[in-house]
Amino acid sequence: MTNKKILITGASRGLGLAISKKLSSQYELILHASSKESFTTTLPNSHILCADLSNPEQVSDFCKQLKKEHGGELYGVINNAGVTFDNSLIFQPEKAIDTMLNVNLRAPIMICKTAMKIFSLSKKGVIINISSVVGETGNAFQAVYASTKAGLVALSRSLAQEVAALNEEHSIRVLSISPGFIETDMTDKLPEKEKEKYLKMIPSKRFGKAEDVAELISFLLSEQSAYVNGTNIHINGGLA
């Protein structure tokens, strides 16, 4: 156990919970969800920090609290929280569009901004933004969601270059990962015919598990991955 603190957004269930469980024995965790009631699992060495990421004012308060309470020890940020409302763009309500843009892209940008301020003092830290395979391939009825996920890849690459431009000597890394079809409550909503179609496209012949992604996150936070920076890593079983 180190004194390094790792922030994980969307940590109360699914992928975020799996990541939290994996990292709980290695780091002190700052776990985010929209409310404390969202947490049904208690993890040791963890702090809970809540905010509705669709609300810019709450995101601003969240970032101020993060810096005030944990700025001294913050080492890693996992921007995992995300939402999707699948629909043809023609019929997509503006409220749903705004929510996806705010939660999936604006909130991570603001959290990255806060983390970069903190990391600039210690000249060390890791930001991992969770994108998606659809950020590269696109997907019908997910135009807005896919756009936000593509944005996270561009954000990560740009910030990695920005760090280098501002600091000659540093150990700050920014990268993204793009999971494919991972068994979560989001993929559980897919019709069986859709699942069968995608399964045929995956060379590994199975959907990924949240634990697969958690293992990758653990590696990327470690010193063993010190030369992995400014890139997007696919974890999708070979899905083309």
Rank of each mutant, 00 (worst) to 15 (best):
A81K: 04
R106C: 04
E73K: 09
L89Y: 15
N55W: 07
K117R: 14
A107F: 07
N45F: 08
N45C: 09
A51G: 10
F91K: 15
A146D: 05
C50V: 12
S60P: 10
T84L: 07
V133I: 13
M116N: 10
E57P: 07
V126G: 08
T84E: 12
I78Q: 00
K117P: 06
I111V: 12
E94R: 11
M100P: 02
N129R: 01
F62G: 00
G135T: 07
V126N: 03
S122V: 04
N55Q: 15
V77P: 01
K68H: 15
L74A: 04
N104Q: 05
V83W: 00
N129I: 02
F141Q: 12
E136R: 10
L43A: 05
I118Q: 07
T114C: 11
N129Y: 02
A115Q: 01
I109R: 05
K123R: 11
A107I: 03
Q58A: 06
F119I: 05
H70K: 05
A146I: 03
A143M: 09
N45G: 14
G82W: 02
I118P: 02
S46C: 14
P56A: 05
A146S: 10
D98N: 15
I127P: 00
K123L: 04
Q58G: 08
D61P: 01
A107H: 02
L53R: 01
I78T: 00
L53K: 00
L89T: 12
V59M: 05
N104P: 03
I118M: 13
Q92M: 15
Y145C: 01
N139S: 09
A143E: 03
N55S: 15
L89C: 13
E57A: 15
R106K: 15
T99I: 09
P108I: 09
A96T: 10
S60K: 13
G72P: 13
Y145K: 00
H47D: 08
Q142E: 07
F119K: 02
N55R: 12
I97G: 01
